[in-house]
Simulated scan of single mutants.
Amino acid sequence: MEKSEKGFIPVMLTPFSDDGRIDYKALELLTAHYLDAGVKGLFANCLSSEMFELNNEERISLTAKVVKIADRTVPVVATGTFGGPIAQQAEFVKRIYDTGIDAVILITSLIAEESDTDEQFNEKVMQLLQLTPSVPVGFYECPLPFKRVLSAAQLGSFVATGRVTYHKDTSLDINQVRAKLAVTQQPGFGLYDAYMVHALASLRAGSAGLSCIQGNFFPELIVWLCKNYDKPELDAELNALQDFLILHMDVMHDVYPYAAKYALQKQGLPISTFTRRDVGHFSPANAREIEQLYADYNILQQRIGI
């Protein structure tokens, strides 16, 4: 994930048929939807993909399908750690890397126990790297099963190994993002922010791009932001976009990823709203909020010229 590739990397949804099986035809259309929007990479087999509700064979087949569809047009990354002894995790890291992805994402909350110290966590990361020689990796501070946020010092030491190409940051703290950027100025590495409250500030601080759920509602908007964040003549439009993301954050997070699938379906993408994860009831009120979201989005689109 070179810094020249600054842009949006969507956390991909997994389309299911109404009987709960992975819908690979819908996956083709969804992947094309992302690519047509101008994304700079794809993050398959992630939390938005309902990765904890997939078995290992499904994780492999889903990721391999995305790699095939992308056909090397953009980098593809995918999660490769799901708990257990480090040696066991290393075997799956190597297996999913063999699907042809560009890097294997390590979930910070699944490499070590919640009770483990930072030093114990660091040791396990280094052990995992030793057991998976030559495999490029990244980190994702996934909120489940608990949230472990890397310090700037930790991330800097990992990036210094030359093995880390990607980091999805969920610290929700622009000062932490800046601190991480200050110690990871290495070619081939990119920090991608998930928190849209400070999306504009993060890009201007030097983040390589964004990797957020909002792009599952309107990927072209996040692509536009990544392309235009540094243009002073567009300050008014950029600030309006930032305000829009803040205003509608709760709507997009509520009953997710069902809400995102519903939104894509309303846009004409043939995707079922079926989710394996129990995300609660999608109510008529939720539907009205999504309708209002897109009404406001249409106004914003006209203002910024998408």
Rank of each mutant, 00 (worst) to 15 (best):
P10Y: 09
P10N: 01
M12F: 11
Y24F: 15
L29W: 03
A32G: 08
G41Y: 13
C46L: 04
N56C: 01
E58I: 07
R59D: 00
T63H: 08
K65N: 06
K65S: 09
K65C: 01
V67P: 07
I69K: 08
A70H: 02
D71V: 00
R72M: 04
P75I: 00
G83S: 11
G83D: 03
G83K: 11
P85I: 04
P85Q: 13
Q89W: 02
A90G: 05
E91N: 12
R95W: 00
T99Y: 02
A103H: 12
V104R: 12
V104Q: 10
I107L: 15
A112I: 00
D116A: 09
E123S: 12
L129M: 10
L131G: 06
S134R: 13
F139I: 03
C142R: 14
S151M: 09
A153G: 05
F158I: 01
V159K: 13
V159Y: 10
A160Y: 13
A160I: 03
A160F: 13
T161E: 02
V164D: 06
D169S: 09
T170R: 13
T170S: 15
L172T: 09
T184K: 13
Q186G: 00
A194L: 04
M196D: 12
V197M: 12
H198Q: 13
A201S: 14
L203M: 11
R204E: 05
R204L: 03
S207V: 08
G209C: 09
C212Q: 08
I213L: 14
Q214L: 07
G215E: 04
F218P: 00
F218R: 14
V223L: 03
N228D: 05
D230F: 10
K231M: 07
L234E: 08
E237N: 11
A240M: 12
V251T: 15
V251H: 09
A260R: 06
K261I: 03
A263S: 14
Q265M: 09
K266Q: 15
I271P: 01
T275L: 00
H281D: 13
S283C: 08
P284I: 01
E289T: 00
E291T: 14
Q292R: 15
Q292T: 09
A295I: 12
Q301V: 04
R303Q: 13
G305D: 06
